[in-house]
């Protein structure tokens, strides 16, 4: 059976909120190492990969691997019944047909319990190969969100060019064009505002603005985001969590 307790419901609420537009039905794979989710979006151009490791839970127990088939729209409805600061417990028996979600307030004088019906989901699981990325950019997640938001009204695509000198986001649309260049910077007292570039060779990828902006729903989970790029490969957009990560992969647009 699975029993996982999170000291703050907000983490789980935010994670589900961040992926629920891309993915509707998915399996939460529960193992002794933690909770994992891997799913493609409905149009199959992006992939979500979530890991909440066991040490991120204040209590965690999973003695047999379980795949919990969950409709994220329904899960969202149940998660909205709890407050962000509540203690959240997830519980499922080995052959359970529902996931029990329990909320307890910090004063410990209000307990609520909801059961979410589970589904049988036959999901294709993709193996993500080890990729040597040409560039890795770590930047404030709010900055990445702002760029995607600003460029959304101009173009359906954003081109990311990364060189040693900086990273340049460019868009071109019917009304005109735009670009934002960020140079590496460091600030010892505010590391969350730094932009860091690790580069082995210059790389350029063109990606769908709509999807990038969708990934930005995870902005509240982490102050920094890492973009990893390799030529003609999916971009990896990673939001680190205190124990685990939320990763998005997006296939690049290919020039004929």
């Amino acid at each position: 059976m699975l029993e996982g307790k999170l000291e703050q419901a907000s983490l789980f609420k935010k994670v589900v909120e961040a992926v629920r537009e891309l993915v509707q039905d998915c399996n939460f794979d529960c193992t002794e190492n933690g909770l994992a989710l891997q799913a493609m979006d409905t149009s199959h151009v992006s992939l979500v990969s979530l890991l909440l490791t066991a040490d991120g839970f204040s209590e965690y127990r999973c003695d047999r691997n379980l795949a919990l088939g969950i409709n994220l729209v329904s899960l969202t409805k149940i998660l909205r019944c709890g407050n962000n600061e509540d203690i959240l417990t997830l519980e499922a028996g080995d052959s359970a047909d529902s996931l029990v979600v329990r909320f307890e307030n910090t004063q410990q004088d209000r307990m609520s319990e909801y059961a979410l019906k589970l589904m049988d989901i036959d999901q294709e699981h993709l193996g993500i190969p080890e990729t040597e990325y040409a560039a890795s950019i770590t930047m404030p997640s709010t900055e990445f969100q702002r760029i995607c938001r600003d460029m959304q009204s101009i173009s359906e695509s954003i081109t990311i060019d990364c060189t040693k000198g900086g990273v340049k986001f460019t868009c071109e649309g019917d009304i005109g064009s735009g670009s934002v260049t960020l140079k590496p910077n460091s600030s010892a007292d505010k590391p969350e505002l730094c932009t860091k570039i690790d580069l082995s060779e210059p790389v350029s990828l063109t990606l769908s603005t709509k999807y990038l902006l969708n990934f930005c729903k995870a902005t509240g989970l982490s102050q920094q985001v890492t973009l990893k790029l390799a030529d003609e490969n999916p971009i990896l957009v990673e939001y680190p969590l205190s124990a685990g990560h939320l990763r998005f992969y997006l296939a690049p647009k290919l020039d004929e």
Partner: peptide
């Protein structure tokens, strides 16, 4: 508009 491949053309089924 540019072509966009499915993500599964990059990642194999496991």
């Amino acid at each position: 508009p540019l072509d966009q491949d499915a993500i599964s053309t990059f990642f194999r089924s496991s």
